[in-house]
Design a protein around this nucleic acid. Sequence first.
RNA 1: GCCCCCGUAGCUCAGGGGAUAGAGCACUGGUUUCCUAAACCAGGUGUCGAGGGUUCGAAUCCCUCCGGGGGCACCA
Length: 554
Amino acid sequence: MTPLDLAAAIGAALSGAVADGRIQLDPAQIPDPIHLERPKDPKHGDWSTNIALQLAKKAGTNPRQLAELIAAALGGLDGVKGAEVAGPGFLNITLDAAAAGELARTIVEQGHGFGRNEDLKGQWFNVEFVSANPTGPIHLGGTRWAAVGDALSRVLEANGARVTREYYFNDHGSQIDHFAESLLAAALGEPTPENGYGGQYIKEIAAKVLEEAGPDTLKLPRDQAQEVFRERGTAHMFQEIKDSLHEFGVDFDVYFHEQSLHASGAVTKALDDLRASGNLYEKDGAWWLKSTAYGDDKDRVVIKSDGDAAYIAGDIAYLRDKVSRGATHLVYLLGADHHGYIARLKAAAAALGIDPDSVEVLIGQLVSLLRGGKPVRMSKRAGTVVTIEDLVDAVGVDAARYALARSSIDQTLSIDLDLLAKHTNENPVFYVQYAHARTANVARKAQAAGVERTGGFDPALLTDPREADLLGALATYPRIVRQAAQLREPHRVARYLEELAGAYHKWYDACRVVPLAGDPVQDLHRTRLWLNDAARQVLANGLDLLGVTAPERM
RNA sequence: GCCCCCGUAGCUCAGGGGAUAGAGCACUGGUUUCCUAAACCAGGUGUCGAGGGUUCGAAUCCCUCCGGGGGCACCA
């Protein structure tokens, strides 16, 4: 009897009561599935629901009566030990140990598939994240989106969605020109130009370009030399970014170059079509998108008066490109400094005839940096930028990804470098990983002691309160996977894992899998091994959704 | 002026209308002849920023205000 079975039974009880007229209710108002939760207080049973409180008014009855009606229907069910009405109309349900323990077998048998579902089958998510300008290494903020975006992608996939992870290189426009100027200046030993980029990496890339292209490059006319540095320099920067993301365990399916949209004529075509459909107009020598017609607070320039395409022109063509490749959901992870972008992006989609609701912009708050408890201003000029490599060097990939993915993106995140560099267990990732390593160790010891899963699985033996808690935590996992996808909040997986790890550690302390020396191996030990392995499976499944390794030993 | 996010324990943060608001860290004490002590057990702290409203019930939803952060380009 899983919580889902129980929810279905409650739903059936309500439908039955509607069918034979005991309550008056539109069947569509019965939620599916019925929401069940693990009560904090064990006195309130294994599972609890407030469904009677929610539906009583609509059903023209009072909550306690409605709860009693459901309780009566559940009472006779196989696996249900008791159903009690409490307080204003809560329904508290207690399961037989055997019925609850059956879950351990289910999890072990389903393995990697446990918790996964097909809710989003047929939906194709294009998830664009990081997309940092290729003018420098990825900084702390971009690293957060790398961790969160990849976790979100994994969560969506676990719900049956098809996902394309996408990185948009803004390799067109003035920022890249400044980048090229900066490289050339560095090669010539000149100071960093105004609006340019400084820092050691500029010198390194400039040196590489010079080595490849030869010293004669510097004798070329300035604009030609700059072109060499632009082309070769951005290529190096792309590679560095891809490499550092790969080191971080994030590999994009598509690295998209803005330049390609201009080169292929896609931008021109999109703008022509918008002009033809009456969505563009000319004013002050520039061309404007009538984005106010689609909810934006002002119209946007798409072709500047100097004839160059504005940034949004690329975005417009890019939206269309994503849709043409099959995506049904266009998800963007952007930093809070881009929030003004939502309205214009949706307006652009609408003008193109793309459903604006398919454009989902997730705005994440910025990462602030502390050192020894004091705020640090990150500044490229001052050389205090913290890059993805700096973070990985300081704490390792697992701790970095976990720390960045465990908070809601609505929350500004403070990272204290000194604290993380200490390698203490202040980072909860160790708590979760240690739980997994323990399960692996228990399995090894069990095997050595002759405890095997084959034969002797008797869930009725799982009577310790710690076993009920652990089973309850395990049973929650599929709902967390759903919720994380629906709300686009992968951090819920991390928080769940911390709870599960806690339940496992407590169980481990109270319930031995391996018999004490001299004691015989009994069915209790065999059955607990199933539970141990179930916990191991769910810890591994959850860590996988976060892109964090599940170590066998620590 | 307008828009977005936040305000919960000493710190970092969870809590998508429910029962006594939680975790980790930090602090104090305890637990190992036996599956990993990166663990477990015990000890305690909250005007959930403030004030109104909706509700049987609000940290959660709505409004106002206060405080902090981030935006509001013919930059990308």
